[in-house]
Each structure stands twice: as structure tokens, then as C-alpha cells.
Design a protein around this nucleic acid. Structure first.
Length: 426
RNA sequence: GGAGGCGUCGCCUAGUCUGGUCUAUGGCGCCCGCCUGCUAAGCGGGUUUGGGGCUACAACCCCAUCGAGGGUUCAAAUCCCUCCGCCUCCGCCA
């Protein structure tokens, strides 16, 4: 949730942000009304409660008839306190609901508009010209089959559509990518984490995911208060919930591995072929707790680390500044790195990094201690590598005419020195 | 999964049976000051968090906060219920 002070003191800033997202400003006024009502309810309750407490002390000291007389008087007061407390609770819940309905206030730099209004910040590398090389590129499905790396048929047989098995060099490739990512993260001072991929409602709601379309894309475990996470951003955001972190310890950087589960409910018919869009994949995610002042700079650093990794995979990609309407509700700004996918003839998202400022920490009750006071802190997240999409980009980009795939230099040490993935006969 | 025990303001801890000066005890740690060639020791003071009022987001006043949420009561750390977590034993298992 956003800072209530911004809502109170600068409601127009919030309205402007809503406009930039292409969303209604009504939520702002509803929240302001709820705030006024809540504060009135608090004042009413506290006044009566204070009177009740004073009375209670007299009761404790009195005895006999005097005590009975006091008890008779205070009984009515007690009933009033109870009603006012209930009213306060109701008003407070209404306020929280209204406040949570407001997405984060987007950054000034964030482009206005929707999905198609992104701004390309830079293009790195040059897409391979297969025509000039004299052969037609195979897509990752065919390459995966030839290499014995990806088994979609059996994935569908066992688990249904949008599932896969990684086999042989495919499995090796995943572990190599994970190791390369973790190695880089470790070198940059990140704490490596293996995070739980099932979390409680509290954690899932804290990141803001349940508010976006009511969690349509999220798997829930039947009969239990557990959700399967779509990213380890969720457990890592909840990791320090209800904690006060030493301000001097910031930024705290985590590189977290976890499987990710997504229903992909809203993407029927999209990317049905291959492993571009699947119900489950593994991912190494960077997650950072930082000061509010440092958050924008840290966001750039996360982007730099993402680029460093894509450079190691020797991919052609571009960096995109996502428009306000296409941001998650938690983020004020988001950069995607999109790699060139030869057989699709376009750039596809491989990594994504968001600056969520204090939006998540407010919900999850994570604060910082700065000297003798406590204050809000920021969270940021960024993909180091999402395995399936990395595999797609690597296979398609580095394929050779005979269906073999050249292994990028940086990956070789993690594949036992393997320089080329060769087709296998099955 | 079964049985039992436990959860107090950074850490440890008193208090819970017998509800009411608990505005929660004491120790450790930490912070400020005094003392002191320096350090240590000693002495004095301070030290949960959130919210509301008023305001300079100070001071001050008030409310809540004893794992969480309900309930009983004039009054709950204390009694009752539900949930969560931890520990011990048993069962099961990678």
C-alpha cells in the first residue's frame, strides 16, 4: 500500500499517477473519505475508552455499596465502548481496503500509457542473419527434440499442456544456467537462497498479487491456506515481514532459486508452442531490500546485473522501459530485457526488474531502523534467469545448420567443458 | 497423524493457579552522563512498536500492544475458545 501521508498531503500526485496508468482516480477520493471516517471513529472510541479506564480504577479501590453503585454506572459506559470499538474496527478495515485498492505511485520517468507504450532504452547485440548464413533456423521445439533436451510430448502426457520434461543436455543446461547465475550473484555479494514455493495467504497478499485480477493466475492448494508462488519474489518479500532491519545493513541482496507456477489463465492461445509460456519453470530471482533514497539507483544496478547475465549468454536483446498501465500495482517503474528469438522474428521478455519502493514493505510490515527512529524501506526485484526462456533464446540463437548448438563461453565450465550440444538419435 | 509442554517490550526472565496501583519485575546488552592517566569496574539516567490528538513529522496528552484473533467481565498478560509457531515423545518417511 502507498504511504497514507502522500494520499493526505498530495492527493493530486496520486490522481496523476492513476491517470498515467489509465486507471480511475476514484480510488483516491474513496480512500480519503475512509481516512476521515476512520479517524473520527478512533477519536470517539479512545475518548470513551479513556473514561472507562479511569472509572475502572475507582471500581478497583471501592468496596461495598459504593462499589455496587459504581458498577451500575460503568456498565452502560462499557457497552458504549464496545460499540465504538466495533465501529472503529469496521472503519479501520474499510480504510485499509480503500488504501490497498490504490496501486503504487508511478515514477516520473515511467512512460504513460499501456502495453504498447513502452520505450526502448537500448538495443544490445545484433540479431543473427540466418538468411545470410544460408540456412533456415529451427525453433527451440525442434532443436530441443533433436538434442534430446526438451520432451514436450511426455510433459503433456504426464501433466498436461504447457508442461515439459528437460532431459539429458536440457537438464544439464538448466543446472548450468542456475550455477552461472548463482556464481554471478555470489560474486556481486548476494546471499544465495533456496526459497519455499508454497506460501500462505499473508505472504501472497503482501506482494500485491492477489489484488491484480483476484489472483486468477495463481494456483491454490485445495483445503489448505497455501498458494504456489509464481515467483520467489513472493517468499522473499515476506522473508523479513514483521521485522525491523538495521538501516546500516541495507541494501540486503538475495539471489533466490525457486520453481514458479502460473495458471496462464488469461493467455489462452498465446505461445502454445514450446516452452515460452508454461505452467511451471525454475528461476533465479534477485530480491533487494534498500533504503528509499537508494532504490532508484539499486534498480539500475539490478538492470546492469541482468544485462551482464544476458551478455554471458551472448544474446541479442533490447532493454524496455515499461509504461505505467502495464506495470504491476506494486511497481513504480519496470525494465524488461527482451531477447531476440530468431524463429519468431521478434524480441521476447527474458528478464524483468521492478522498483516497488515501500509498497510491499508497508503491507508486510517490514521497516528499517535509522538512528533513533524507524522508517519505511524499499524492495526491488529482478530476474537473473528464468530457465525456460533462457533455454529457448540460447538454443535458437546459437544453433548451427546441422541442428547442433554452440555453447556460450561462460556456460561451458558449468557443462563440463562442453562446447557444442550435438543432436542425438533416439 | 497421535500425546504432552511452551510462547512476556533486542536476549534471558518475574508475573498467569488465587482477574483490579502490571502505567509488566529483574538481569544482560545497548545509549547518554558522572567518575577516571587510558581501558575496565563503579554510580546515575534512558532503552517495545503502532496509531490518534495537538503540532514544527519537536515536546506533551491519549489509545492499543504480553504469538494472532475472538469471547467472558465493570475490569484480562492472568479465565474460556479457535488458529499459528516452537519443544519433547510416539508413529511415518526422502
Amino acid at each position: 500500500m502507498i504511504d497514507p501521508r502522500i494520499l493526505r498531503d498530495e492527493p493530486d500526485r496520486v490522481r496523476a499517477s492513476q491517470a498515467k496508468r489509465g486507471a480511475s482516480p476514484d480510488v483516491v477520493d474513496r480512500a480519503l473519505e475512509a481516512d476521515t471516517a476512520r479517524r473520527a471513529a478512533i477519536a470517539a472510541f479512545e475518548e470513551k475508552r479513556s473514561a472507562q479506564k479511569t472509572f475502572g480504577k475507582q471500581v478497583a479501590q471501592a468496596s461495598g455499596d459504593e462499589k455496587q453503585a459504581l458498577l451500575a454506572q460503568v456498565k452502560q459506559l462499557s457497552a458504549e465502548v464496545k460499540d465504538l470499538e466495533a465501529a472503529q474496527t469496521t472503519a479501520d478495515e474499510a480504510w485499509t481496503t480503500a488504501l490497498k485498492a490504490i496501486p503504487n505511485v508511478v515514477a516520473d520517468e515511467t512512460p504513460a500509457g499501456g502495453e504498447d507504450d513502452f520505450v526502448v532504452l537500448e538495443e544490445i547485440g545484433t540479431p543473427r542473419d540466418f538468411a545470410a548464413e544460408g540456412f533456415e533456423p529451427r525453433d527451440h521445439v525442434e532443436l530441443g527434440r533433436m538434442l534430446g533436451a526438451i520432451d514436450l510430448e511426455r510433459g503433456a502426457k504426464v501433466s498436461g499442456s504447457r508442461f515439459y520434461f528437460l532431459t539429458g543436455v536440457g537438464a544439464q543446461l538448466e543446472l548450468a544456467l542456475v550455477n552461472l547465475a548463482m556464481e554471478q550473484a555470489r560474486g556481486a555479494g548476494f546471499t544465495q537462497v533456496i526459497a519455499p514455493s508454497l506460501v500462505r495467504t499473508e505472504a501472497m497478499a503482501g506482494t500485491g498479487y492477489l489484488d491484480q485480477g483476484g489472483g486468477e493466475d495463481i494456483y491454490r492448494i485445495e483445503g489448505e491456506d497455501l498458494y504456489l508462488v509464481g515467483t520467489s519474489e513472493v517468499p522473499m518479500a515476506a522473508y523479513h515481514s514483521q521485522e525491523i532491519l538495521d538501516g546500516a545493513s541495507l541494501p540486503r541482496r538475495y539471489a533466490s532459486f525457486s520453481p514458479c507456477f502460473r495458471k496462464e489463465a488469461g493467455s489462452h492461445g498465446k505461445d502454445t508452442k514450446g516452452i515460452i509460456r508454461v505452467h511451471w519453470f525454475d528461476k533465479v530471482e534477485m530480491f533487494v531490500y534498500a533504503t528509499l533514497e537508494d532504490a532508484a539507483d539499486e534498480h539500475q544496478r539490478l538492470l546492469a546485473w541482468e544485462k551482464e547475465f544476458l551478455d554471458k549468454l551472448e544474446l541479442a536483446y533490447r532493454v524496455v522501459d515499461i509504461a505505467a498501465g502495464d506495470l504491476g500495482g506494486s511497481a513504480i517503474r519496470k525494465f524488461d530485457c527482451e531477447a531476440w528469438i530468431p524463429t519468431q522474428g521478434k524480441y521476447r521478455e527474458l528478464t524483468s526488474t521492478s522498483n516497488c519502493t515501500d509498497f510491499q514493505t508497508r503491507r508486510l510490515d517490514t521497516r528499517g531502523r535509522f538512528g533513533d527512529r524507524t522508517g519505511p524501506i524499499a524492495t526491488l526485484n529482478g530476474t537473473l534467469t528464468a530457465i525456460t526462456r533462457a533455454i529457448v533464446a540460447v538454443l535458437e540463437t546459437h544453433q548451427q545448420a546441422d541442428g547442433s548448438v554452440r555453447v556460450p563461453q561462460a556456460l561451458r565450465p558449468h557443462l563440463g567443458g562442453l562446447e557444442v550440444l550435438e543432436p542425438v538419435s533416439r
